[in-house]
Amino acid sequence: MTKYVVKRLLIMIPTLLGVLLIIFAINKMIPGDPAKLALGSNFTQEAYEAKRAQMGLDKNVVIQFFDYVKGVVTHFDLGTSYDTKRPVSGMILSRIGITLKLGIWSCIVTIVIGVAIGILSAVKKYSVIDYVMTTLAIIFSAAPGFWVALMSMMVFCLKLGWFPAGGMGGWRYMVLPVLCMALSPISLVVRMTRTSMLDVINQDYIRTARAKGVAERNVIFKHAFRNALIPIITVIGAQLTMVVGGSFIIESVFSIPGIGMLLLTAINTRDYPAIQGTVLVLSFFVCIINLLTDIAYAYADPRIKSQYVGGKSRGLKRKGEKQDAKA
């Protein structure tokens, strides 16, 4: 298992390099001169040339790329923002916590509420509760995030005055963004949990468990739910990447200075280093989430775990064969 994780981590490196290359290429292809932008409206030709040299824009594109990669690898140097003139790594570090906090909380809320409602719907299938929950789930998964955000602001801030409409501060500031961010994933998880649970509940081994005299609660949670986990993990994993990558909608509606907002501003100001750094960090998180999802699979299902382990042993065998051939 450890070997599998290490292998997966190593595979991440070319992935991230690829991401870097693509972002770099796109940034170079779109119009707009960052040196002119950095200088603003008043500058001379000499100042412009100096600026280009200072930013390394006068060098060959390939060299620019390798310089950048080298900086990232050796000391997490993501360059200096053209816009704020501060190190991009620092800007990201100061914001990543906010996005992660938002993401982790909304993920917890998604899992707790989504799975609970999903199981309830499955256990009480075709009841009024089931119909209400599934109908709401369909409505909310169809509702666009910003609309939900605005509506919740109107209700909970404007009409009820329970929570502020935006900004950062105590826990009250997190409630609405977290809920809005979690709402669409929740409805997906509810539907997936329900389907998956219904599928599992009809399996023979659930009947076996009941015939053994296992109490209904344990039948649902120990036997059915753990088997229903695989599709649920898939959905949650996919949603989590969406949470990390797509938080900028919620962040900008609720004025939360997270990494999504940083990316948005960076794109607007053609702040190449900030764009590159942000996207790199985001793709890193997506890779990590995918890895965690796969590891979670292994813990949820021993058959998948044995595949991972099996893959490893097969690799060893092949190596052994080669050695045999040499001998």
Binding site: Q203, D204, Y205, R207, T208, A209, H223, R226, N227, A300, D301, P302, R303
Partner: peptide
């Protein structure tokens, strides 16, 4: 059916 009567996990 013994194939499905046992809980796989």
């Amino acid at each position: 059916d013994p194939m499905t009567a046992l809980n796989p996990i």
